[in-house]
């Protein structure tokens, strides 16, 4: 427990010190574990949010805060291949598929992390991580 409390008691305060490669989550549905993937973005950002809605989000923004946690999970996978973070992202995708948020058309899914970064003047995307196949009937506990 101390390793979680100490960074709160003695913080480093390194906010936005560097703008590094930025992850994006994509998922694909699979008829079986070996099927060819057709990747789709998971929870893509909306094209535009009206100003009134932006101000409402000052006091109520559950979806965004969850997506920020998924972003930090992506960063843990990029930094140290975190199994816990993989489970978090897989669990969230599975929940979306089961609840009808996304159309479930198969019994398996994978996700991958694309990374967007600057190379000179251009922005480039490349695949950094591909998950194993997860079954839709696998169970995940609540997080947090």
């Amino acid at each position: 427990m101390l390793r979680y409390l100490l960074p709160a008691l003695i913080p480093s305060w390194r906010f936005f010190d560097d703008v590094g490669p930025s992850p994006r989550v994509e998922y694909c549905l699979l008829a079986d574990e070996n099927a060819e993937p057709e990747w789709q973005p998971f929870q893509p950002q909306p094209e535009h949010i009206p100003l009134t809605q932006l101000f409402r989000r000052l006091v109520w923004n559950p979806a965004r805060n969850e997506s920020l946690y998924l972003l930090s999970s992506c960063e843990k996978i990029l930094e140290r291949d975190s199994l816990q973070a993989q489970q978090v992202i897989a669990g969230r995708i599975a929940l979306a598929l089961r609840s009808g948020e996304l159309p479930p058309q198969a019994r398996w899914f994978r996700f991958r992390l694309l990374v967007v970064e600057r190379e000179g003047e251009a922005l480039v995307r490349h695949e950094h991580f591909v998950s194993p196949a997860f079954g839709l009937d696998q169970s995940w506990g609540p997080i947090p």
Partner: peptide, 25 residues
């Protein structure tokens, strides 16, 4: 809060969670 930090392997919401825990302490 500590249980949540452990469950999420760190803060759920970055700096805001750290300040909230600092204030609680």
């Amino acid at each position: 809060s500590t249980w949540i930090l452990a469950r999420c392997d760190g803060p759920y919401n970055g700096g805001s969670d750290r300040v909230a825990v600092l204030m609680q302490i």
